[in-house]
Amino acid sequence: MPDVLRLAAFTDTPEGGNPAGVVLDASALTDAQMQAIAADVGYSETAFITDPRAHTVRYFSPAAEVPFCGHATIATAVALAERDGPGEVTLATQAGPVAVATQADDDGNLTATLTSVAPHVEHATDLDAALGALGWIHEDLDPDLPPRVAYAGARHLILAARTRDRLAALDYAFEKLKGYMSARDLTTVDLVHRDATDPTTFHARNPFPVGGVVEDPATGAAAAAFGAYLRDLDIVTPPARVTIHQGHDMGRPSLLHVDLDPGRATGVRVTGRAVRIGA
C-alpha cells in the first residue's frame, strides 16, 4: 500500500471542503490497484501521479476513473508544494495539460490555482429525464440561467434553481440519475443558485452517482465548467471573479473562486486552499 496523503480542498479547515487522496508516486501501481486504493480511501476522488517526472496524474473515484478532477488537482498541487515548495507545474491529465500554481501566505498557508483546458458549452438533451430523476419540475428552474452541458476537462449538466430552498432540498433517485448521466458521459450534475445580493456569487451542489458518491462538497471541475457557462452565455462579463459556496448543506462548507478572462476558448482559473486531514 503506497503512502496516501489525505487533504481537504477548497477549505482552510479539515472539517470543511472536499477530501481527496493523493499518491505522489504511483509509478508502480496498476490500474486495478489504483481503483482498489481509491475505493478503500472512500473519498470522491484520489489522485495518482503515475509519472513523477512528467507530472502525469490520473483520478479515480471509488467506482471509476474520471478524466479530470478539480478538487483533487488542488489537493495534489498543495501536496507537491508542501514537498517541493510553492511554484508552478503543469499536470498531464487525460483531459489535457492543466497548469497549477501554488503560493504561500505569511503564515505558510498554501493556496492553489488551476487553469482548465479549453472549455466549451452545449445544449442539454432530454431535460425531462434529468428533472424527473432529481424530483424537480420546470418551474423549479431559474429562467435567467438556462440548462446547458459545460466542459472544462469533464462534462457537467448545469441546472439553476429558482430558489435557495429548492437547492437545499436535494433528494434524488440515485440509480435513475446515474443511468441518465452515464448515457451522456456526465461527471456530475452542477446544481446552482445565484445569490440574491450579488450577481457573481453562487451556491452549488453536485450529485455524483456515476462515481459512487451521493454528492460532492466541492467540485473544482464543475466550477471551471460553470465559469465557462457564465462567460459563454454572457451572464458574467470578463474579466471577472465568481465566488461559489458549496458543501454548506452537507455540513462541509467550501469556498471556490473562479476567474474568467475574455475569450470563450480561454481556460478558466479555479482557486482554493487545501489542508491536511488528520495532520
Rank of each mutant, 00 (worst) to 15 (best):
A152Y: 03
E139L: 14
E122H: 08
A154H: 10
L191H: 00
Q103G: 14
G108S: 08
D107P: 03
V98L: 07
L157M: 10
G108R: 06
R164Q: 12
T188V: 15
H120I: 11
V100L: 12
G153N: 02
T113D: 10
G179F: 05
A154P: 07
V98S: 03
T188K: 00
D105F: 07
L145N: 02
T90Y: 09
A129L: 13
T115S: 09
H193Q: 15
K176W: 08
A104Y: 07
R194E: 02
A118N: 11
A152N: 09
A160F: 01
D142H: 05
P143N: 05
A92P: 09
Y172R: 07
A101C: 13
Y180A: 05
A154I: 06
R184W: 09
R162F: 06
H138E: 13
G87D: 04
L170G: 02
G179D: 12
A160I: 01
A99R: 15
D144E: 11
F174T: 14
D198W: 05
V117H: 06
I137H: 15
Q103V: 08
D185Y: 14
R166K: 14
H123G: 14
A150P: 04
P86M: 09
Y151D: 07
L157T: 01
A99T: 14
D165Y: 12
V89L: 09
P97Q: 11
A161C: 15
E139T: 14
D128F: 07
H120G: 06
A152G: 10
A150T: 02
L127N: 04
R194M: 04
D140G: 05
V192Y: 00
D195T: 09
L131P: 01
A173W: 03
H156S: 03
V121N: 00
A154Y: 05
A99N: 09
D107T: 13
T102I: 12
S182L: 15
D140L: 10
K178I: 05
H120P: 12
L134T: 02
A196H: 11
S116D: 03
T93A: 07
V121E: 00
A129K: 07
Q94L: 15
H156D: 00
P119L: 03
L170V: 06
L145E: 00
N109E: 12
V117W: 07
T93I: 10
L191W: 00
V121P: 01
I158S: 04
R184I: 04
I137Y: 10
D107H: 14
P119I: 04
D128P: 11
A196Y: 03
T111E: 12
D126H: 15
M181I: 04
A130C: 02
L177N: 03
V189H: 02
A112K: 06
A169N: 15
V100G: 04
L186N: 02
G135H: 08
D140F: 01
V117K: 02
H156Y: 04
P97H: 11
M181V: 02
L91Y: 15
L157K: 03
